[in-house]
Structure formats: C-alpha cells, structure tokens
Amino acid sequence: MKPATAVQIRKELKFRSKEELEQLCLRLSRFKKENKELLTYLLFEADHEDSYVEEVKDFITQQFKEIPATNFYRTKKRIRKILRETKKFIRYSSVKETEVALLLHFCDEMIHYSNSVKRSKTMLQLYERQLALIEKKIAGLHEDLQMDYISELKELPRHNL
C-alpha cells in the first residue's frame, strides 16, 4: 500500500470534524513511540521551547553519564545512539536555535566525556562533522544569535585530522 502525499492528507483533513481529528490523533499515537513523542512535544512543550531545550540537554548529559567506559565498542555505539536521539528531538522542534543549542551541547558533552573518544579517529570525525553542521546552521540565524553561538562554538576544541 502506497501512503498518501502530504497534500492529499491535508485536503482530506479539511473535511473531517473535530471529533474525528481527535480520534485520528489518538489512534496515531498508539502505533509508534515517535508519534506519541511528537504529539507530546506539540501539545505540551512547543509553547515552552526554553524548558524543552533544557530538558533535552539534561537528557543528553544523563545519557553520557550512563555510558560504560570499559568497552570502547559499546561507548561508540552509545555515543551514536545519543546523537540519533538528539537529532530526533531536534526534528520535533522547528526552531533553528534549538537545533544549534542541542548540537552544541552534544559536542561539548562528547569531547569532554573521555580521552578514549579523543584518540579515536572515527569519533573525532563524527565530532568534526557535527561542528561543521553547527557552523552551517549558525549561518542561517539572526546576527545577534550568530555572535552568541559562534562564541560558544569557539570554546569547543578543534581536532584537525
């Protein structure tokens, strides 16, 4: 079965009543955890973006604290998982400042996590790619915000490979 396009869905939703839309949202939230997380963001956290950013930053910090430092293979896997989850949280928010703030926090936590990360070429490449992405995203922000985020970015160490 081929899914409908966004335009087709939008047109169809215009013909539905409020009760039908409510039932559709509730049914949608039952099938995937990400759907439920997105609805939670839209309903409860979209109006309070600053608290959402702080909550996600706390989550990232906590995830880094829980990484087992004994096995480097598992450490790499966990760092990649944390990055995937961070990007998922970024997708929920359409605010560009949120993306930059969360990626900066991720990079800060990653580079200060352990010396083993700094010795791994793979992890340093991942880190550098995120820094390049942050630079690209900062360029699209307002000038005042650019200056703030650029100063934060300059505080992060660079490792030329």
Rank of each mutant, 00 (worst) to 15 (best):
161 L>A: 09
71 N>P: 15
65 K>W: 07
121 K>L: 01
23 Q>T: 01
155 E>H: 12
57 K>D: 03
103 L>H: 10
128 E>A: 03
131 L>S: 03
92 Y>L: 15
101 A>R: 10
40 T>E: 12
14 K>A: 15
79 I>K: 00
154 K>L: 12
132 A>F: 05
41 Y>E: 11
134 I>K: 08
30 R>I: 10
88 K>V: 07
73 Y>H: 15
107 C>T: 01
79 I>D: 01
89 F>I: 13
34 E>V: 04
80 R>F: 13
12 E>K: 14
132 A>C: 10
66 E>Y: 09
129 R>L: 07
17 S>T: 03
125 Q>K: 05
91 R>Q: 13
124 L>R: 00
145 L>R: 15
141 L>I: 13
101 A>G: 04
116 S>A: 03
157 P>W: 08
141 L>D: 01
80 R>Q: 15
115 N>C: 03
128 E>Y: 00
94 S>Q: 13
4 A>F: 15
133 L>V: 08
88 K>H: 07
27 R>V: 08
78 R>G: 03
42 L>T: 04
34 E>N: 14
15 F>P: 14
21 L>A: 06
66 E>K: 09
139 A>G: 03
77 K>A: 15
120 S>M: 06
126 L>M: 12
91 R>K: 12
43 L>E: 11
138 I>T: 08
34 E>D: 12
41 Y>V: 06
28 L>M: 15
94 S>I: 11
9 I>G: 14
118 K>S: 00
86 T>S: 08
71 N>W: 02
102 L>R: 03
95 V>K: 11
110 M>C: 08
6 A>F: 14
152 E>Y: 13
125 Q>Y: 10
90 I>K: 02
105 H>I: 00
64 F>K: 02
95 V>S: 13
93 S>P: 11
117 V>I: 10
96 K>G: 09
110 M>H: 02
123 M>F: 00
149 Y>I: 14
15 F>R: 07
143 E>S: 05
94 S>M: 13
114 S>E: 10
101 A>K: 15
70 T>G: 13
7 V>N: 02
152 E>D: 15
159 H>A: 03
116 S>H: 10
27 R>H: 08
121 K>T: 01
120 S>L: 04
105 H>Y: 14
57 K>L: 13
50 D>W: 05
55 E>W: 07
90 I>E: 04
113 Y>G: 05
2 K>R: 04
130 Q>Y: 03
110 M>V: 11
121 K>W: 00
152 E>T: 07
98 T>M: 03
8 Q>Y: 02
139 A>N: 05
147 M>F: 08
39 L>H: 11
74 R>V: 14
88 K>C: 06
34 E>R: 12
36 K>G: 07
126 L>Y: 01
149 Y>M: 11
107 C>L: 05
141 L>F: 05
120 S>G: 07
157 P>H: 06
59 F>N: 06
45 E>D: 12
120 S>H: 02
122 T>M: 04
49 E>G: 00
120 S>A: 08
156 L>H: 01
145 L>M: 06
104 L>E: 01
132 A>S: 10
29 S>L: 10
143 E>F: 09
40 T>F: 11
125 Q>N: 10
43 L>S: 07
59 F>E: 09
124 L>N: 00
77 K>Q: 12
